[in-house]
């Protein structure tokens, strides 16, 4: 009995001992990875090895490529506050912009739209949506969760290995008391495996699809005619729906 307790303790400690410390880095709005920070011309203290590469990146790599760096796990979040004259038309265009890149409107809360956009299309979609009105506020943030992701993967692997070992131990138990104790431990580790899997899936989802929150603000009524520009150009005065739609029978 004493021996079993020692074995369980040893197994658990071994599994826990290999956990890497969780590390999460938040970048300032508009800045994503370190390479993007360099791309944007906002220098980080360069490491010796990176200094040459950083220059090359700045001049030759498109932002989309930086966004999908396979070796980094970055969660992108963006926010736009737009002043628009026609909120209904803007909503349709927002929906089109999301669907055009295989994204979707995740939530609508009054004038606020939460979009989920494939990470590789994040910046392009931000730009498309920003053109729908006057930008009152814009936020872009990237959180590098690579270390946290790797840590979770490692913890999951270890928990799964531990579960296998405990299962094997269960077969070797000699009495009911021992079996119950091992089963209790097995149940705890299984729960841990499921919890870690859930966390990893959620993180994968957040990395794969960026979140863009768009808030629309209806602009004031159209400017009064008195304050409006009066252009002395025939071509602009000739434009408009009234003349266009005035089709006569011939």
């Amino acid at each position: 009995m004493m021996r079993l307790g020692v074995i369980l303790l040893a197994l658990t400690t071994a599994a826990c001992g290999s956990y890497a410390p969780s590390m999460k880095r938040d970048f300032a709005p508009g800045i994503t990875s370190e390479s993007q920070r360099r791309h944007a011309g906002l220098e980080m203290p360069p490491t010796e090895a990176d200094s040459t590469r950083a220059v090359a990146v700045r001049h030759t790599v498109a932002p989309e490529v930086l966004l999908t760096e396979a070796d980094r796990k970055i969660i992108f979040n963006g926010g736009l506050m737009l002043q628009v004259a026609d909120a209904d038309a803007a909503e349709k265009e927002i929906r089109r912009a999301a669907e055009a890149v295989k994204g979707w409107i995740h939530k609508i809360d009054g004038p606020t739209f939460t979009l989920r956009i494939p990470a590789a299309q994040f910046m392009a979609t931000m730009e498309t949506v920003a053109k729908l009105g006057r930008v009152l506020d814009r936020k872009i943030a990237g959180t590098d969760v690579t270390e946290e992701y790797k840590d979770l993967q490692l913890r999951l692997e270890n928990a799964e290995k531990l579960r296998t070992r405990i299962s094997a131990l269960l077969e070797k138990t000699k009495d009911v008391k021992e079996a119950l104790e091992v089963e209790r431990e097995l149940s705890r580790v299984t729960e841990e495996v499921e919890r870690l899997k859930g966390k990893l899936n959620a993180m994968n989802d957040a990395v794969t699809y960026s979140t863009v929150v768009v808030t629309l603000q209806r602009s004031a009524a159209p400017a009064k005619a008195a304050a409006a520009p009066r252009y002395p150009f025939a071509w602009v005065r000739a434009l408009g729906l009234e003349s266009l739609m005035d089709v006569r029978e011939r």
Binding site: A85, D86, A89, L132, P222, A223, A228, P229
Partner: peptide, 8 residues
């Protein structure tokens, strides 16, 4: 501004 159309 002059004709009150909403830019989309």
């Amino acid at each position: 501004e002059a004709r009150g159309y909403a830019f989309v």
